[in-house]
């Protein structure tokens, strides 16, 4: 790890001010950034931790909307987001206890790892990402592998989830990292179904529109018969071919649906 300065502000205002410093970079739970630092793959001169700001941490239910502070760790979502069981279950399946107690939803979304779980929940739910300057619809937020709509100096404050009638996340674990080799988040709303796939595409998390159309017409596992993803553009590496990942996405989607009916 290279040396760097660390700010640990306790208010949002102080954090935003600190982030104005040259080369300053926000630090969420650090579950991606810290390992990268330890391997000297990143060399920021100043990190601004967002983990000590009380306003950024917490879960709030208002009507059919669940709002989660950006610095809320996965373990808290797993334990306290009972109003949205599929989301709580997803959070409880990320990494291991150490990761879940440090990693945050805001950090995961801002990083947008193509194999992370949270992007699938956010995109699959049609959540809204609230930053210090605007609100961004999930459909506009994810811009490809490790890329998001966030601009310099823009940080996630909270995420607003509309709670669906029913939802389910099914993940097939990567054998080594336990990220998603393929994950499908299926959410059913009155009149519509959203399906988000993670771990599979070279473009990162995406909505599987063919599956959504089929399931909107008839919500049943066999409605997906004949619906499949093409292998083109899917991730291929030593853990699986693009065809395998495309196939797994279909299996995980079908299993998620089966668990909901």
């Amino acid at each position: 790890m290279y040396s760097f300065d660390l700010d640990r502000p306790v208010t949002l205002e102080a954090a935003l001010a600190a982030l104005k410093a040259e080369d300053a970079q926000p630090l969420g739970g650090g579950q991606t950034l810290i390992p990268a630092l330890k391997q000297r793959l990143a060399a920021p001169s100043r990190l601004v931790s967002l983990a000590a700001i009380p306003d950024l941490c917490g879960i709030d239910l208002e009507g059919e909307t669940l709002t989660i502070g950006a610095a809320t760790p996965h373990a808290m979502v797993a334990g306290q987001a009972g109003a949205y069981p599929a989301l709580a279950a997803l959070a409880g399946g990320i990494g291991d206890p150490a990761v879940r107690n440090r990693g945050t939803i805001g950090g995961s979304l801002a990083n947008n790892d193509p194999s992370a779980c949270y992007p699938a929940a956010v995109l699959g739910s049609g959540a809204v990402i609230c930053t210090n300057i605007r609100e961004i619809a999930a459909d506009d937020f994810f811009e490809g592998m490790f890329a998001t709509a966030l601009e310099d100096g823009e940080i996630i404050i909270r995420v607003r989830f509309p709670v669906p009638q029913a939802a389910c996340y099914r993940k097939f674990d990567h054998p080594a990292s336990r990220f998603a080799l393929a994950g499908a988040f299926v959410a059913r709303f009155p009149g519509s179904v959203r399906v988000a796939i993670t771990g599979v595409s070279e473009e990162g998390v995406f909505r599987w529109s063919e599956a959504e159309a089929a399931l909107s017409a008839r919500f049943a596992p066999d409605a997906l018969e004949g619906v499949s993803l093409p292998p083109e553009g899917m991730i291929e590496d030593l853990h699986g071919s693009s065809a395998y990942r495309a196939h797994l996405a279909g299996v995980m989607t079908r299993r998620a649906v089966a668990a909901m009916v």
Partner: peptide, 18 residues
Amino acid sequence: VYDEYGQLLSGSYMDYAM
């Protein structure tokens, strides 16, 4: 796993499954 250049692809626990 080595790639065709002799780089170790499974060079960490992210890719070497224990």
